[in-house]
Amino acid sequence: MSASTSALQDVGSVDDFLNVAAIETVPLFEHLEFEFLLEYDVFALSERGRTRVHKPPDLFRGFLHCYYENIYGTRPVTRELQNGLVWYYCGLDKPPSRDTVDRFFTDLEHVIDDVFDRLVEQAAARGLLDSTYSIDSTHIEAIQYNNAASWNYDPTAEEYYYDFGCTIVSTGAKIPIAAEFTQAKQANKGTAMRVTCDALAVDTPVWMLGDSAYDILDWDDHLLAAGVVPIAPYNPRNTDDPKDIEYRVEDRIEEHSEDVQLKQSILGETYNDRTGVERTNDAVKDCGLGRGRARGRIHVRAQVFLTLCLRLVVAITNYERGDNLGSTIITV
C-alpha cells in the first residue's frame, strides 16, 4: 500500500522523520478527530481508578498507521510503535507496551462496529454517499489453525478454501457504509436483512443493487416499503413456476406503484453499477480485509472492522485533500 516502514528505522531527527512520514501516514490524521472514543465505557477507568498512560484515540491512530503499512497483530503493532518517532506522531507520549496494545485491542473489539458507524457518519456529513447502494459478500481467508472458520468450495476455481465472510453495502467512490462479519462468505437471509437495515439507517438511496443471491421477497418488500427500488436478477430456481421476468422488482412494482415510479428500460443500465461494490471489496482488501491474521472469530472480526475504518479514513482524507476518493493510498 505504501513504502516499507523500514525507512523509519534509520530516522535520525524529527526533521528526517517528518520528511519520511510526508509520504506515509501523516495526512491520515490531519482532518479527522477520534476523541469520540473517549465516550465508550469500555475505555473508562478501572474500578481502582487506574489511569491510562496512553489515550484510546492515540492508540487507534497507531493501529490505523500500522494497518496502512500492512502491519497486523498486536506483537508486530507493538514493535512498529517502538520505531523512530511513529509513536510520537500518533499522539502517544511514549512507546506503548505489548500489554497496553493487547488490552486496547481487546477493549476495541467491543465497540469497533460502532466506531465504524461513527466514521460512516463523518463520510456522509461530507457528502461522500450517492443515491445507489450495492450489497455483496466477500470471503476472508483464515489462517489454517483458526478453528473458528469454515471450509467452502469455489466452483469456478474448483478448489476448497478456508475462510470467514463479510457482507458489505457500499456507495459512492468505494465507500463501505454497512457490514456484517459472517462465518462463511455466502450471506443468509438474516444477514442480508440486517446489513440492508443498517445501510438504510445511514440514508435512504434511490436504488439498492444485489446479485441473484438477493432475490429475496422480504428484502424486496422491505426496500420498496422504504421507497427504495431493489434490483436483483430474478432467480427462477427459487420457484416451481418461474416468471418471465429478468428482475424480481418487475413483478413487485405494480403492488407498490403508489410509492415507486419505475421505467423498466433503465433497470439493466442501473444494475450495471453493481460492480461498484466489487471495487469496494477490492479497495477494502487493499486496506487489509483479504486475510484474517488472528486466531478466533472475535479477533478476526475486529481486524475486519478496523480495515473498514481505515478505508473510510483514507477516503475522507483524500476528499479533504482534493485527491481521488477511490484511491486506497495517500499522495503528497
Rank of each mutant, 00 (worst) to 15 (best):
T25K: 02
P27W: 01
T74A: 07
L224H: 00
R297Q: 15
V284E: 14
Q9A: 08
A178Q: 01
E246I: 08
T167I: 14
Y153E: 07
A173K: 10
D93K: 12
D58M: 03
L119Q: 08
A192M: 07
E30A: 09
T25E: 04
G127A: 08
V120M: 11
Y88W: 09
K189R: 07
P56F: 02
T100K: 00
A22S: 13
S150M: 15
A283W: 01
R295Y: 14
L92A: 03
D323P: 03
S97D: 02
R194S: 07
A294R: 12
C166R: 09
V206G: 12
M1K: 15
T167S: 12
D93A: 02
L310N: 13
E269K: 06
Y319G: 05
D221A: 10
L217H: 13
G326V: 11
V202W: 02
L310R: 11
D286C: 10
V101F: 05
W151H: 12
I330M: 13
L45A: 13
P233R: 09
V169Q: 06
Q264R: 14
D114M: 07
T25S: 04
F43T: 08
I266C: 01
A178L: 12
A179P: 10
T78G: 09
D93H: 10
Q183L: 15
C66F: 09
D15W: 05
A213C: 13
I177M: 08
V195L: 06
G288Y: 11
E39V: 00
I329N: 13
T317Q: 07
Y40H: 05
T196K: 14
T51H: 07
S97C: 03
A192W: 03
G227F: 04
P242H: 09
E121N: 13
C166G: 11
S265A: 08
K189S: 01
L224G: 00
K243T: 04
V11A: 06
E278R: 02
T317K: 12
I330W: 14
A187Q: 04
G172L: 02
V202K: 08
P242M: 02
F104L: 02
E278D: 06
V11E: 09
Q186M: 08
V111W: 01
L128P: 00
S13F: 01
